[in-house]
Design a protein around this nucleic acid. Sequence first.
DNA 1: TCTGTTTATTGGTACGGACCTATGATTTGG
DNA 2: CCAAATCATAGGTCCGTACCAATAAACAGA
Lengths: 241, 241
Amino acid sequence: MNENTTEPKYQKLVKQMKAYIQENMKTNQKILSEREIAQRLSISRYTVRKALDELEKKGYIYKVHGKGTFVSEKSVPTALNEIYSFTEQMEQLGKKPKMELLEFKVFIPNQELASKLHVATQDKVIKLKYLRTADDVPMMIEETYLPYSKFPTLTVDALSKNSLYSIMKTEFNQSIHVVSESMRASLISSNEAKLLKVEDGSPCLNVRRTSFNKLNEPIEFTSCIARGDQFVYNCKYIHQD
Amino acid sequence: MNENTTEPKYQKLVKQMKAYIQENMKTNQKILSEREIAQRLSISRYTVRKALDELEKKGYIYKVHGKGTFVSEKSVPTALNEIYSFTEQMEQLGKKPKMELLEFKVFIPNQELASKLHVATQDKVIKLKYLRTADDVPMMIEETYLPYSKFPTLTVDALSKNSLYSIMKTEFNQSIHVVSESMRASLISSNEAKLLKVEDGSPCLNVRRTSFNKLNEPIEFTSCIARGDQFVYNCKYIHQD
DNA sequence: TCTGTTTATTGGTACGGACCTATGATTTGG
DNA sequence: CCAAATCATAGGTCCGTACCAATAAACAGA
């Protein structure tokens, strides 16, 4: 039934335990000890620990030295360290998200953008411009820039079928490892005011994001202009000691 | 010379390698293989792997299966998954940050705040209100709320000597594990406009943060109002798989 | 009754070995 | 000369074992 038989044991255990915990256990309830789990499943404690470490990292459980391992509070609706998803947030609010592609072009970047994407000024860059709406109310304008050299065969057609991030990963083997974001408040410019159907000079939130792959090469730069009266940007992460 | 002799081997190795890498190695340079390091230091490969995992998690190195382990790009000025520090950001910009305590009180919260901090409506809450300036220019107003039960002996005096987070950790054994933030743009209200010395109705950035301990109990709620014309909020994190 | 000690349990650290898989260089066969 | 097979090396997974350190309950002695 499971296609991927080469998946490591501990990964299977992560999925299995995650499902079990979510369905059958309560917050702060103690789970079996590492040794007990290992014995029952006839696997080594190493494998169990590796699985539990994953679950802890993702916020499902927490360990207390000398006491045991416990189920975390379920109040983790948004997954930890996940890239912000407009679609997901709107669906949680019971609204219907849509995105309309306004622009798709390949061009030569200016100095500032080139340095953001770590490309030479003569290298090409892909620009994507979207208007995002919720229940047909314009919410934000999103401009994404990609280094052409890393995504040379990206097409509008592909984008209409899958999300940009899944295309990045499956088609171009580029997955996001580190994300750097900045947020600022400003007053909207007239062009954007028209698109968002708000008054000129309304407050707006500008979120800029640069995403890096495992080699710390920038693979995406995105700037969002969101309506200040409608939009809240959420972010959740694990703080390392 | 090292006071803490009980510190685990792999932690010592982390510090040692981090220092070595930063001082002697270049971006994308290959480091010794796990087996080689283990052999040279006469420790097990397990310990080396554990140390390298830490270094990878913190963004100093990256591994490539079959090839080796390499030094990441140094362009990680702000540590990853760190809580935003106004002080640090301003110092990086060459400005002198200051914070002035405007208010310190213990009170009974309203329903909304009580639910944010997971306390009963009859439980007490501590309020801290700060004005933060950079080169004596007002930048943001920060209001922090703490559950009184977790920090009963917190004093203004202690806050003048150490940062809130270090007091939380050392005095009350509460360290931050998960952080949830939201950002929105709005127009400033008249009270805050006076404090920040901007015009009524100027754009401002509102950042709200809830911090949780390892047990996923909220230990802090903070709301910041920052000048839209001056202030940029930064955040950087590792994206898991 | 109370306090200090012992003991069992739990997660944390560390070892050494084995094998798998991805990668790249070397060798081999055509 | 080139493509396929081989091989060495790298990180990734998994095992069994041992001991350390934090916790809490059981126990012992005053």
